[in-house]
Write a protein that binds this DNA or RNA. Structure first.
Lengths: 327, 327
DNA sequence: GGACACTATGACAACGTTGTCTCCTGCGGG
DNA sequence: CCCGCAGGAGACAACGTTGTCATAGTGTCC
């Protein structure tokens, strides 16, 4: 900046005025300054600016499990859209479902003085956030609630969605329904399992623990579960996939099975309608999730001091075929 | 920081020494300082630190067309992985295939003094980058080359891949092959079209322009093209989808067609193997693309001054069924 | 002609850090 | 007893900006 000032023959403050479009600069002077800026390729240092102004940094942080997972990337996109409309940039990070990594990312973002943080929490302990939140960094939890603090949260109706899935299968005559879920440490997985149990109760189906398999989904783990649950005289005639990754592994495991059970997945996914049979899912609007969370965050950024809010977005069952086959 | 200093009864410089793990601080003093830090919830301001040290900001920028597209989110993930290994954070942005937006994002990132930029360029003019690059911000182009400057670039073998696709179809007896591509303004689309033409020549097929349809893929545009190209006496018996989005729309358009042509897609996608028939694709390793680009960028960040490099990653045809049906 | 308003500009401090230099204290060796 | 040296700590400037205040010049009005 001082280089520009020297070249234009003005003071550094005048350069500042020009780059900030402040009034009270003579057009001729402004033009000289602009020319100097152009010539030197000057670009103002936003870091220094933010430091001096004590203002916001114009960035927000987004932490998800894995930015490469289509579910989270759609979320990322929705968040980015809102952030852009508020003139903010987005710093992203993948926690890899590891609470230490989550913490590290959050604190790193705080040290960078992001204006706010959106997080799909991996851990259950968020006490470390208290000082940051007290210091004025708003935090909104997405898809899963905070572990041990009260904070803004946006969720989907995991319970209701899974109940709906069970009911749908029951209405098509299924009495033995299996449930394949992610690790029960994950809120959504636990909640959906709860919904499964509740759904069984409501539909007069006796809840059978031997038809439940929970755990981080891998091709092998899901394949084994399929063998175990869908074989034998007491085999399940229908199966619910607890999330999109379970669903993918399940579909692959079933591809070469002789007898295909009815199936409903939680989370919609691309091409679900083109499979054979098309996959019935409990769908929810991931964009809306990101949208709602980001809107809430920016309300906080702009000073909203109301009590922490908890938003639960609706889900709806999309019947495509796989869930409508008889036992 | 001065609050911490006051509380601990030391100078602000000593606090600095403690948070930087500098030697020559008495253990007792350090402990007092740590306690004060804990009590006040102090977190050092990285912006101020970077300003003072004149060092790197510890961030890199990544600009893609759409962070929500699985192709780019996988890229994002690969980049993030390398960035993390170099202790950097990633700022992401979606250009939406708009060159003005691309420029805006790049300049914004530069103003934030990112250590380097990875960009899937939307535009063809990159002269605006020259001052930034001269000022020391390395830039690596991903998936598409820079328009009018020489710069590091990582591409995939679009030409070879499409030739391979045509050859594959020709070997299965197809003589009338259609090509559905994205807008020809996009480098990869143009390159693949060139590969299509070259593939026809090499396989003794007369290149028929009426079997080509280029343009931003939408369900309607692809649906119309399908009707036009796959109907009538001179209809194509096989079709090549120029990228993953064309492929998805194409599959949907073909789902209810009476006669299904053979098909090969460029870009692999999840569940391609589970469709009926499974989709043959020209696959490439998106992670490797991000990996290579990020590695190259960090080499530059760390001072590599060698001439700009151009890396072309290989592709390979994955035969799954849809490309092996006879005319 | 002096008080006043207004325009255009600059000097200087401050944002929160850290690098450099200086200072103080205690200790061991001559 | 004095000197030098090392460990521990602080004063101060500087990073690149911008907010505040001051200043000089130019009309304008009574």
């Amino acid at each position: 900046m001082s280089d520009v000032a020297r070249l234009a023959g003005v003071s550094i403050k005048t350069v500042s005025r020009v780059v900030n479009d402040e009034p009270a600069v003579h057009p001729d002077t402004a033009e000289r300054v602009m020319a100097a800026i152009e010539q030197l390729g000057f670009r103002r240092n936003l870091g220094a600016r933010n430091l001096r102004r004590g203002s916001t940094t114009g960035t927000i942080g987004l932490i998800v499990e894995d930015v490469g997972n289509p579910f989270y990337s759609e979320l990322n996109r929705a968040v980015e859209r809102i952030a852009t409309s508020f003139g903010r940039q987005v710093l992203t990070g993948s926690s890899e479902e590891n609470s230490d990594r989550e913490r590290e990312l959050v604190l790193e973002f705080c040290a960078r003085r992001v204006d706010g943080i959106l997080v799909v929490p991996a851990g259950l302990q968020h006490g470390y956030l208290v000082p940051e939140m007290r210091a004025g960094t708003p935090v909104v939890f997405i898809d899963r609630p905070a572990g041990d603090i009260v904070a803004d949260t946006v969720l989907v109706d995991n319970l209701g969605g899974t109940i709906e899935a069970v009911t749908h299968l029951a209405q098509h005559g299924h009495r033995r329904i299996a449930f394949l879920g992610d690790s029960p440490d994950i809120f959504t997985a636990a909640e959906r399992l709860r919904g499964f149990r509740e759904g069984c109760v409501r539909n007069g189906i006796s809840y059978d623990e031997s038809l439940v398999s929970m755990g981080t989904p891998t091709p092998d783990s899901v394949g084994d579960a399929v063998k175990r649950l869908l074989d034998g005289p007491d085999a399940a005639t229908a199966v619910i996939a607890g999330n999109n990754r379970v669903a993918v592994h399940l579909l692959r495991a079933l591809a070469h099975a002789e007898r295909r059970p009815a199936m409903v997945g939680f989370d919609d996914f691309e091409l679900a309608d083109l499979l054979n049979p098309p996959v019935t899912v409990v769908a929810h609007d991931v964009s809306a999730l990101g949208h709602a969370a980001a809107e809430l965050l920016f309300a906080r950024v702009q000073g909203d001091q109301s009590p922490p809010r908890k938003v639960v977005l609706p889900v709806h069952l999309v019947a495509r075929g796989s869930g409508e086959v008889a036992p």
